[in-house]
Design a protein around this nucleic acid. Sequence first.
DNA 1: GTCGTACGATACCGCTCTGTATCGTATGGG
DNA 2: CCCATACGATACAGAGCGGTATCGTACGAC
Lengths: 205, 205
Amino acid sequence: MTGTKDARARLLRAAEAMFYEQGIGNTGIDALTARAGVGKMSLYRHFAGKDELVAETLRQRDERHRAWLLPDEPGDPRDRLLGVFDRIADAIEGSGGTFRGCPFVKAVSELEDAGHPAWPVAREHKARLTSALVRLAAEAGAADAGRLAGDLLVLIDGAAVQGVIRQDAAPVRAARRMAALVIDDAMEAGRRVGTRVNDDAMEVE
Amino acid sequence: MTGTKDARARLLRAAEAMFYEQGIGNTGIDALTARAGVGKMSLYRHFAGKDELVAETLRQRDERHRAWLLPDEPGDPRDRLLGVFDRIADAIEGSGGTFRGCPFVKAVSELEDAGHPAWPVAREHKARLTSALVRLAAEAGAADAGRLAGDLLVLIDGAAVQGVIRQDAAPVRAARRMAALVIDDAMEAGRRVGTRVNDDAMEVE
DNA sequence: GTCGTACGATACCGCTCTGTATCGTATGGG
DNA sequence: CCCATACGATACAGAGCGGTATCGTACGAC
């Protein structure tokens, strides 16, 4: 057969790009399959429908997105935490004024219906990102790693949203400064009272 | 005539609610005019089209939204700055799990096309909110009021976005803690070097 | 070589969307 | 009193939507 998974992979690639670049609602099935170079019916052979394609697109992006924000390289945990903001700043500056922010936040914003299959995917992504931040925070010796991770997530999403509206990396640099502040606070407190991991900052239901 | 501005006002009221509650794209003209109790043609008599109605809805909301976040009451500037986060926390907790975040961020997220008339309205809203934060920051004696205002805006939007995804006020409380941190930092630095207002943190083009 | 199957293409269905055209009507100003 | 005008209701146009049905085809397994 002609590469069973080929049509599926091409669909996912085209869907990810188009959903992110022009929005989910603004991306029609016909345009999507045309860009993927795939027959329309191939979409419905591989996915239950558009909603499932959206969810699967995000599911595939989850791991890649986290690996992009927090590459699995050795290094000072503090630097790796702050590196998240450098990635976002690079994305804004390299986008030429078309930065679109966190794909998961974007999807959830567009899909009002909290029953949409993409919602739990977005929540799980944020939960897994939080877990990674908790681990790094603990590694850095933060007094309350869960709390620090939650703080950083607020800064990350705030930086991304501001970056979308302003199309400018200045808010990300502000977020990075604040991140350094709360990280150093937590590390100093950790040196006094010892590290305590608290990973219930976000729960996946 | 039967109250010239009545139909227009009812349209704006219905549009604001429906656009925010179910999304702009998911709100059809027929449903909108029906809820407003208005003939369909009345919409096109008062507005150039749906896009203009969206923009005008946000234009009307701008002042109200800023007054809600920063009520014009006398009081300690630091408390008023922190009060923003209390408003957001109240909104999340009072929403019963349907908090939808900042209406302007939400609109911009849904309207990919940066040429949509709602975009400049959202940008101007954020710029005006920033100006108000700058004034309060200067009043509080912050060393660099523009920088503090930018920091707070990141925290505000981060708190709102996290609130939408988690439907929980915990991230807002985290944002409030960080806000207190950066405010106190700026106030302490201001006590040392004096206050300097720097309102070019965001420009409206 | 033959069969099964995943494929691309295309026509089609029913629905909804924004926006227009056209009614009859009620009401307030001159 | 009478007419201009803003109004609500409704039918309609043109387009696009998600999803289905049905082709002929090319290719891999056996």
